[in-house]
């Protein structure tokens, strides 16, 4: 198992990865509450980015509606917990099932009818908007007034019910992120992963080689939507409140994809590096503006937008591909997303 996982990975890359993981594991011992909250947000986006990356980075299908799967995961487990007292870990399979079913419907409709590219992206937005307005009127889970989980001041951690202090949530999301990383690592080098890359690079060519593109695009959306649902479970139990206007809003979907695009679409480390950069940037800007005394609403986001603009313009393939060359940890599979400009 270990041997297969490490096959073809340079030794110092493994060492660097182990160091990063070790740093993240011991972080709560040194981090204050603020830093811990920031780290949780970073890992949350690293996880959702990794899940989105399966669809876009591996199979080339641009989804701008991943907030849908987060929201479905969140609402499913929250409703089971509040209405029936069913814990999040038992609710999670249900959440994944509903998310996957929704992904299956979208994928089936879109890929059957040959909807791709920009059209597919806008279809995914449409379904997320649909859910947003639908949940606004869904009074069983609070409608537009919001849905709340009971909150108390916790002195001990109840992992089974995901009730507890920030450090527990930190380790939960760290574990999820690590599992997602390993899963993507395995997927990338599997038969399915190579088929996905063939579809991403040239769908017609892939089909002419005998790849059943419909089926493999379906696998991509099923796996990606299923992976995204647990992020929703985490979201619901960590924040304890859900509003359709926020949970399903297009900005939520965009937040999910910022990390992997800035980090490097189609790479394993892109979503993680991207989440650190994006969240770190937002926090640093906030600090700087507060310190400088210029802090009208919107100022932070203007600079944030400017930074995004600069990064996309000077690093077309994201931060990770050049960084990996710098660290000399790039492999053949990592480089496939980084082809020369035509």
């Amino acid at each position: 198992m270990m041997k297969r996982l490490l096959h073809g990975v340079p030794l110092h890359a493994t060492v660097l990865l182990a160091l990063l993981l070790a740093a993240l594991v011991v972080a709560p011992a040194f981090a204050n509450d603020y830093l811990l909250t920031v780290l949780i947000v970073i890992l949350y986006f690293a996880y959702t980015g990794q899940a989105w990356n399966v669809m876009m980075g591996f199979a080339g299908q641009l989804s701008l509606g991943h907030a849908l799967y987060v929201g479905l995961g969140a609402y499913t487990t929250a409703a089971l917990y509040v209405h029936f007292g069913i814990g999040p870990w038992i609710g999670m399979p249900m959440a994944i099932l509903i998310s996957v079913a929704c992904g299956a419907i979208i994928g089936f409709l879109a890929f059957r009818f040959g909807v791709g590219g920009v059209y597919f992206a806008i279809l995914t937005i449409a379904f997320a908007e649909f859910a947003r307005i639908g949940f606004d009127h869904f009074s069983w889970v609070g409608g537009s007034a919001g849905f709340f989980l009971p909150v108390a001041n916790y002195s001990h951690d109840d992992l089974m019910n995901l009730r507890g202090r920030p450090a527990m949530f930190y380790y939960v999301i760290l574990a999820l992120t690590a599992v997602a990383f390993l899963l993507c690592h395995a997927l990338m080098r599997s038969r399915v992963g190579y088929f996905w890359q063939a579809i991403r690079e040239d769908e017609e060519a892939a089909r002419s080689l005998g790849i059943d593109t419909f089926r493999y695009k379906m696998y991509a959306i099923l796996i990606s939507s299923g992976m995204t649902a647990p992020a929703g479970v985490f979201f619901a139990f960590y924040y304890n409140n859900l509003f359709p206007e926020q949970t399903f809003f297009i900005l939520r979907s965009i937040e999910i994809i910022l990390g992997p695009i800035i980090g490097g679409v189609g790479t394993l480390f892109g979503p993680i590096i991207g989440a650190f950069l994006i969240t770190g940037l937002a926090e640093v800007l906030q600090e700087l503006l507060t310190w400088y005394g210029f802090d009208p609403p919107g100022a932070k986001r203007v600079f944030y937008g400017l930074c995004l603009l600069v990064v996309v313009m000077i690093l077309p393939h994201g931060v990770w591909p050049p960084l990996s060359r710098l660290l000399r940890v790039d492999r053949e599979t990592e480089r496939t997303g980084d082809k020369a400009e035509p």
């Binding site: 641009l62 590219g117 695009i261 919107g298 937008g305 603009l309």
Partner: peptide, 30 residues
């Protein structure tokens, strides 16, 4: 900005214009 992005993939163009959109929305907010 956009001419250099003509040959780039859709998600890259999306990102560029999204950044522009974020700047406009928040610039107007200020």
């Amino acid at each position: 900005m956009i001419n250099p992005f003509i040959a780039r993939p859709e998600h890259s163009q999306f990102m560029l214009l999204l950044a522009v959109a974020i700047i406009i929305v928040n610039g107007l907010l200020i």
